[in-house]
Design a protein around this nucleic acid. Structure first.
Lengths: 341, 341
DNA sequence: CTGAAAGCGCTTACAG
DNA sequence: CTGAAAGCGCTTACAG
């Protein structure tokens, strides 16, 4: 018994058997006499013995733990991916190490070694387009990690066959939003936030253009503002758009890259003396928990983060299903989108 | 080189030294000749060798990883504790295993063994009062875990000296809110959500009564509604309160147990034809990121979750500072609280 | 059915 | 300064 914890030797001694036998009853093998099994089970219980998963891992060459790296968790959108992944991993007896990498920006290279050192059985990586340079940095990390364990990508970016992936179809999301808004009679529909995402599976812009054209509406670049997906930036971009246009040309509907951006957009709209949804409809994306409690309740696109997380660990668990998957989204209509008046 | 990964033997061979020497340069010991150090560093780089933290852990008897168990993460309040803890752990070279236990309710007992098996170097446990029975179950788990590793409690509940703890002073939070509201001229101040928390360090009720009496205001039990801290329940409790009172007796200010509850409370108030803050002031708690983007922006109490998380790992890291700490909170006034009209 | 022994990938006295 | 060897706590052929 080292530092207060019992080892398999302590159990073997107390039960008067070999460690091999203890190991066998631990593993539940049925090559053990009922009588001796009983004996060792008794002392296991009595000692409240917990075998060391790390020692077992050393010999079995697994850690029974996955890693998940995402930008941050104090944002419900990302947290939902974790939740799905965790639940699925738990069911299979795995733990989940969480790495919010925004917190370790500068030491980005070290992510690779931390993950590799830990000998995880796989890692889920949430990748987001954030500029060419950053993208390359992330790919470097991924390639390093990949040497040590399977990786599956989640989020909005896939790397064409280099890693299995489960991604949100951003194009679909925006398309749904545009269609919904167009069906409400809107003709000046803005899209705020996100980048041009050259590497995205299917970009917001693609969906935007496609749906616009399907609705026989022109694509007008003044109605498309790029930016990071924060409330602050959403507000700024919306301010800029409104300030640069004469009022008669203001959009009557805006699609925000996500619900957080929508928060900022609504702020801006209201600060410009317009009401949501009476004067301008706003629709978000991600369907976060507070949407239904906002005033007005925010229409949004539900993107199945939970399922994506689950699916990603399934891919880690089962080599045969590793592929590039896009997951469908659904429109959730609440009060922030209304017919054009 | 086993299953695609190099071991210390591979490096030793390739460099023509013993594994002891490799280990020494890995550890950065200075008992190694510059020349041989160079030699082995070269092959480490060339092989892109990453030593196994788990093998090292076996011999050194540590895992360099902490665990944190909290109800869930897809709630920014809890996520912030994680963030603080993660950052601090990261700085010290530790990883963080996250266990959202609401997801494993029924298999509650297994939390103890999962944690114990993993031989973590410590665990942070966020405890919340949720009924006598549940409380006892949690304590059982804790006691089991404690046998294997240090535990520090965070949240709102402490167990008087049985575990070091870093807690939110709920009493202070409510007191601040009451004082603020009273100074605005409110006399009928309700408190919605949370339980009577017999085990809390300092209960909301204690602060509520104390501040009320300090302001020479009566404690009226009709203005105190208990309940779980969800938006739904906040809305229900508020509905019940309003429906059971004649309008002239409606509270002109309400303190919600937290920001999420405040969402529900505001809903209810508005559904009853009253405006916030013109007719009733509302103040939340936790200062979540969406508060400033609500309409009206929600006044709240900032509870320093990030600091609490950091402090908890400091206690895990340094035995000498383990104690029961209460952390102060601060009032953040926004637009949902206004002078009584 | 059960045990002795080797091995998983490291670290660290102990010699030299 | 460097290496041989023992040990960390398990699992699993291999004998018996």
């Amino acid at each position: 018994m080292a530092d207060g914890r019992y080892t398999i030797y302590d159990i073997a001694n107390a039960a008067g058997v070999s460690i091999a036998t203890v190991s066998r009853v631990l593993r539940g093998e049925n090559t053990v006499t009922e009588k001796t099994r009983k004996k060792v089970e008794d002392v296991i219980l009595r000692f409240n013995y917990q075998p060391s998963a790390i020692a077992r891992g050393l010999t079995l060459k697994h850690s029974k733990t996955f890693g998940i790296v995402l930008p941050r968790v104090d944002n419900p959108h990302y947290a939902l991916f974790f939740k799905g992944a965790y639940d699925e991993a738990m069911k299979a007896g795995y733990s989940m190490l969480l790495f919010p990498w925004e917190a370790m920006q500068d030491s980005h290279e070290s992510l690779a070694s931390v993950v590799a050192e830990r000998r995880l059985d796989g890692v889920i990586y949430l990748m987001e387009y954030a500029g060419e340079e950053d993208m390359n940095k992330q790919i470097e990390v991924l390639e390093a990690v990949k040497k040590y364990m399977p990786v599956t990508l989640i989020g909005t970016t896939q790397l064409k066959g280099r890693y299995p992936s489960v991604t949100i179809d951003l194009s679909e999301c925006v398309k749904m939003a545009v269609e919904h808004l167009a069906s409400l009679g809107h003709e000046r529909i803005a899209l705020i936030g996100g980048f041009s995402e050259k590497d995205a599976v299917s970009s917001r812009d693609a969906g935007y253009r496609e749906a616009l054209s399907y609705a026989r509406l022109p694509y007008i670049s003044s109605y498309r503002a790029f930016g990071r997906c924060t409330a602050e930036e959403g507000e700024m971009r919306m301010n800029e758009m409104l300030d640069s246009l004469i009022e008669s040309q203001w959009p009557t509907a805006v699609i925000a890259a996500n619900d957080i951006v929508a928060l900022g957009v609504i702020h801006s709209v209201q600060a410009h003396g317009r009401r949501v949804p009476e004067d301008v409809s706003v629709i978000g994306c991600d369907d976060l928990f507070f949407d239904s409690y906002m005033q007005p309740a925010l229409s949004s696109i539900h993107t199945n983060q939970d399922y994506i997380g689950r699916r990603a660990v399934q891919m880690l668990l089962d080599e045969s299903i590793r592929t590039d998957e896009k997951v469908a989204c659904t429109l959730v209509i609440r009060n922030s989108s209304a017919p054009k008046k």
